[in-house]
Design a protein around this nucleic acid. Structure first.
Lengths: 261, 261
DNA sequence: CCAATCGTTCCGAAATACGGAACACAAATT
DNA sequence: AATTTGTGTTCCGTATTTCGGAACGATTGG
């Protein structure tokens, strides 16, 4: 795969700013292990285009141009606009945080979050954050409703890495969960990404019947008691179904609905 | 200024996506007027890093990575978090849209917007949008309270381009407005950026007494009647002052306050 | 089935980025 | 005031990298 090494090296510079809020040229030089002149060229090029900018204290930081591009991307996800009102309603109704994620490649990307008002927020998945498709209810629901071949392909190659005490680490377990999810039309997770947190998620389909997003209710595991679960799963499924309808997914009872009355 | 041409050319590719939601390789080739192989290298490099991604219909679009970076930038603007509650309160109180902008170089960049609930929104400045510092109340308030030398420098070099019927196009007029703004502590604009819209803006200072942001109330010109204006200006100034205090700006009456009782 | 269009690979030529060294500029130290 | 230490910036010959025409696949449509 012949690629532009200059370009790739330059973008490495930007990558550094994921961890560091601001950097000086010398710091970048040290971190990349590249000669100063080389880094200088890359940095000033990026700066001249607005991708990075200089503060008054002469340190470099990410430019506001990224706000613009981030905004563009979000606006173009038309799913988001349709689903947001439903998310707000759902969050208000249950008093829990509601997440929306879409798939990019082998990962799920958080797009929108509507926070529960009252409780102190303990953990925070932020817009743009990525997670593997196997961990957490919301990502896994995206995986579960992919076409059979894609799921099989995924299961064949994925390496299961634990994030928290409940992360699924055996392919067999993952496969079983997927089959079960498909049968019942939703997924539940306990402490798969973060300890002491749970989620229940349902898939959103487009007019072609393809999964385009996952909708989840997430919160402290203590909020997901057995008595409350039926209500929660019912609510996400209902909300996700609404969203699917908004996207043109056939309203009529699908095979999935019939199975679960 | 020796710079990385490869890098710059590659970023031109991204720039195209500001206008077009999705593009095919051939389309990019035509628009850039570069050989296909060159474009191909750039595009696949960008794609491999996640800056652009391919949809199922095999067209290219901006990657979700931009959401992450946009989010990072917004989070790092600590001004935003402090000011947002004040903006919400202000918008609620007056029933108008409230904007927050910061400066980057010779431009103002919209950071946050709290929309009025009731009225149909006619025009839309979105997060990340840029405007010159001379046009519109909110940008100009940023300009007006810069240090004397910087203002002078700006006035010396700026080219005044009209955006709407009320845009200031004479340096003298701009200078007079700036002087007046400094005296009264706020700025008013009518149809400077968009016809039939007005705004009134006040500056937000940090602990060092530097302007770090502009806060504005914006809406249809018909909402900015002479009877209502005093209330509006009073409200933005009060809100902006609150924000300045949150940023550590000395609470005590400044010279500016004394002048205006 | 052939034509057309789009994306992808190859490879020699040449333009481009490289990077060591030396320079400027500022702030902190003596 | 002089010096040191730390920045960022320019110079320029070298050679690595990108360039880009051409030819190849892969997919779609007539």
């Amino acid at each position: 795969m012949h690629q532009n090494q200059t370009l790739i090296k330059s973008m490495e510079v930007l990558r550094l700013f994921e961890q560091y809020e601001s950097l000086t040229l010398t710091e970048i030089v040290e971190m990349l292990g590249q000669p100063k002149t080389t880094v200088y060229r890359m940095v000033s090029s990026l700066q001249s285009m607005g991708w990075i900018s200089r503060r008054k204290d002469s340190r470099y930081e990410l430019g506001l141009l990224f706000v613009h591009y981030g905004q563009l991307v979000l606006e173009r996800l038309n799913i988001r606009d349709l689903v947001l009102p439903v998310m707000r309603q759902l969050s208000h109704q249950l008093g829990e945080t509601v997440n929306l994620i879409v798939r990019e490649g082998l990962e799920g990307v958080y797009i929108e979050k509507v926070e529960a008002v009252h409780p102190v927020r303990i953990y925070h998945q932020r817009p743009g954050d990525r997670v593997p498709l196997y961990a957490g209810a919301c990502p896994r629901v995206l995986l579960s409703f992919l076409p059979d071949e894609e799921v099989a392909e995924y299961l064949r190659h994925v390496k299961l890495r634990p994030f928290a005490s409940g992360t699924i680490t055996k392919i067999q377990d993952l496969q079983m969960t997927i089959i079960e999810s498909r049968r019942v039309g939703y997924t539940i997770s306990h402490a798969e990404l973060v300890d002491d947190t749970s989620a229940v998620a349902a898939p959103i389909f487009n007019h072609l019947g393809e999964v385009v997003a996952g909708l989840s209710i997430a919160g402290l595991t203590s909020h997901f008691s057995d008595e409350r679960l039926p209500n929660l799963t019912m609510s996400v499924r209902q909300a996700a179904k609404e969203c699917s309808c908004l996207l043109g997914y056939p309203e009529r009872e699908s095979q999935l609905e019939r199975l679960n009355g």
